[in-house]
Design a protein around this nucleic acid. Sequence first.
RNA 1: CGGGGUGUAGCGCAGUUGGUUAGCGCGCCACGUUCGGGACGUGGAAGUCGGUGGUUCGAGUCCACUCACCCCGACCA
Length: 490
Amino acid sequence: MAKVLTPKEEDYSQWYNDLVLKADLAENSSVRGCMVIKPYGYAIWEKIQQTLDKMFKETGHVNAYFPLFIPKSFLSKEASHVEGFAKECAVITHYRLKNSPDSKGVIVDPEAKLEEELIVRPTSETIIWNTYKNWIQSYRDLPLLINQWANVVRWEMRTRLFLRTAEFLWQEGHTAHATKEEAMEEALRMIDVYQKFAEDTLAIPVIKGSKTENERFAGALETYTIEAMMQDGKALQSGTSHFLGQNFAKAFDVKFLNSKGELEYVWATSWGVSTRLIGAVIMTHSDNNGLVLPPNIAPLQVIIVPIYKTDEERRQVLDYGNKIESELKQHQITVKFDDRDTHKPGWKFAEYELKGVPIRIAIGPKDIEKKQVEIARRDTLEKFNLSREQLVAQIKVLLSDIQQNIFQKALRFRQQNTYEISNIDELKENIDKGGFYIAYWEGSKEDEKQLNEQTKATIRCILTEQSDVNGTCIATGKQTKKRVIIAKAY
RNA sequence: CGGGGUGUAGCGCAGUUGGUUAGCGCGCCACGUUCGGGACGUGGAAGUCGGUGGUUCGAGUCCACUCACCCCGACCA
């Protein structure tokens, strides 16, 4: 046993770190807070991209690309936006280096100071709205439904692989609309897309809701969110969609003529998910043996491991395995036949378990003789034999079964760790064990801050579905139908 | 930015009051036996001990400065 993980019961965050490193997903780089995403981790990101990109296209969006650098003045045009991001911006002040006088390396050339500093984008609203100004004159130019796949930089104090890195990959949608209603509809549509993606593709059950004023995106009038529960009971914000109102249109003076010939400001949304989703997948499904990947995003859905002693056996097993591999491939199942002679079966079993491959097929002389294969399910760790004949059909069923099963398991976990509370004391008593706490809430910004100070928990979201009956707000005692989820968060 | 800690082989670590040739485990390479849950044996390669300066006959070890990283807080997708 060469690669063992710290058990998650012992130290959840150490378990997470071990897993990311040992499953070969990513590693820390020589740049503080920035990670190297390794091929296996990147393959998961590519799966996420492919599926989401398709969903964006299906909802009428197109991709474009905007610059990495934003002139400093742009950022300050929307007051609350700059306030939200100012403290974590990387700033470019110079554009050239020169040899240092003592000829030991290079120094920044003081002559090459930029007239106006550039900001490395922490998000692209400002540069995009500055561009949209030139693209929009008439209601006929609307809506503008654009997404970009990009990297952004937020100079975080403390970072963790995938969950919070100084640079991260994401997609950001930026749309422009003629009416408030249409923009609101778009913001809601996209949070629904995220929910569907999280649940159907990542097998992560999420709770959809809106953010309180405190937690809202800098510059947004409304922020919709999907919140997932990790296996330690903490919440992870997994995707957000913002209704930006006319804030950015006003800041960048983006107006259009409506059909009545009147000049109006454009309505906006923005929405995004990031490489953080990989962290969410890891923390939702994995166990002490390693990753557990949902078949829908697993870079490898099936691994075939040959077992043999003699050369003759090897020939037979390879032949048997090659045929299975090509059959599965024909049915669009991503499969690899690991016929390397440099590693032994036991080693391979452990390796692919660590990497979360949903199904393992082992084939040896016994299996050939009995016209069967041995199957091992990663999610349940069960082993059983399947007849060779029905294999492809059975594998398909199994893959979809695994996808369902891990979703249901995560959902059960969330349900078991969600509690209804009726006062703050109940929260204080229980919050340390993690979980989601549902409470009636009609408190102010200050009430929320106080809640945070007292419990270290935050209001993750205001539930979309209000209660049918009035309840008592846990902060103010007021009667309200509005309910919130309170939890400790990543 | 406050508090704590760590820098020694690819990784994880040991190295006593300063003393010869700096060790151990994993990994790596070669050969042989193995091969249905991370095999074993034998041999081998691999280190400017984070950096700079100092004390000393002698520094991984002591002193000063410095750099980097990690953990805990304040900030966050």
